[in-house]
Computed example of a mutant assay.
Amino acid sequence: MAMAAVARRRRLLNDDVIISLADTSWELLDISGSDVSDFGLGKVVEICKSLRAVDISRCDKITITGFSELVQNCHSLETLRCGGSPRSDYTARRCLGIFKPKLNDMDGDSWEDLDTMEIASGAESLRWLVWEKIDKDSLEILSTECPRIAVNPKPSPFGFRGSAVPREALQSITLDDPTVKDIDPTTWAVCGFNLKTVSSSLLSPSELSVAEKFRLAFVERDTRLAPKRAKNARQNQRRAEREWMMTNTRAKALALASQVSKSLHSWN
């Protein structure tokens, strides 16, 4: 989780990274502001069966499909953080129907009178929804049709047991902060990053944290492979040009004319 948190802060978190790091023991998942898509989120949901708090806010690549799969397949999900960007807000609004409880011809005066088993679907485990820029219409729909879900809850001033809002549902916190509390924030600084400068100022390799080793290894590998990628690109370009000349009659004629012209000049 620490490596995933650092990768997210370094803006390196995508489907490949989160899938490779996902572990069955995870109960929290923070992919906010990342490039994780429906595919990556779906794979993590398959691996992490015990997720109880998830932050997908500002994830513009997560659509209604990923949102729906998360809510309906995470049976332990209690806290969901969403919205935060125009695209994410739009996706959340389109998914309001997922939160609504659905009945199978059950009688009752209110949702609170129903047992959990009487609800066919509708994110029955979800209790806390953090949506920073929720619009008035969406808030009204959730308040009237999804009374079990508290939207943008505030901590109880009395701290009564059973009524306290969990840490994961507070707007002021970042979900994955506890996983990186012992890691130097400079390790995920994006602007002005210089590998040599940072490496010389850090501790010896044996004293580096796991997250720092992961970050340095990634940057070192990317730097090492850059010349090879450039060489491959040039080779592919030349190969494409040769293939085009062989298949294009006019290009082939121009190439032959050029060779003949060179031969005549050499004889002269």
Rank of each mutant, 00 (worst) to 15 (best):
D184E: 01
L139D: 02
K100T: 14
L254K: 14
A2P: 06
A53R: 07
N104Y: 05
R224C: 08
L41P: 13
R239G: 08
V210W: 03
T63S: 14
A53L: 06
G40E: 04
T187F: 00
M3K: 15
I119P: 06
V198M: 08
A169R: 01
I62P: 04
I64G: 11
A22V: 15
D55N: 15
C146I: 10
L142R: 09
G42Q: 12
L225V: 12
V36I: 10
T91F: 09
E118C: 11
M117T: 07
L21A: 11
V165P: 03
A164F: 04
D89R: 11
S206M: 02
D184R: 01
I98W: 04
R87H: 06
I19D: 07
R87A: 12
S199M: 13
R9E: 07
E140K: 10
P185D: 03
L203K: 13
T179W: 02
G66W: 02
F160V: 13
D60W: 01
D182L: 12
N104R: 13
R93N: 15
R229D: 10
L254C: 13
G83K: 02
V36M: 09
C48V: 01
A255I: 01
Q235P: 01
D137K: 14
P86L: 06
A22R: 14
L129V: 06
S110I: 02
K102M: 05
V210T: 15
A217W: 10
D30S: 15
N236I: 03
L225K: 10
L41F: 07
A240E: 11
L77M: 03
S143F: 00
A92E: 05
L175W: 05
M1K: 14
N248W: 00
V44W: 00
N232C: 00
A5K: 05
M3I: 14
I141Y: 12
S263W: 05
V36P: 08
S76L: 11
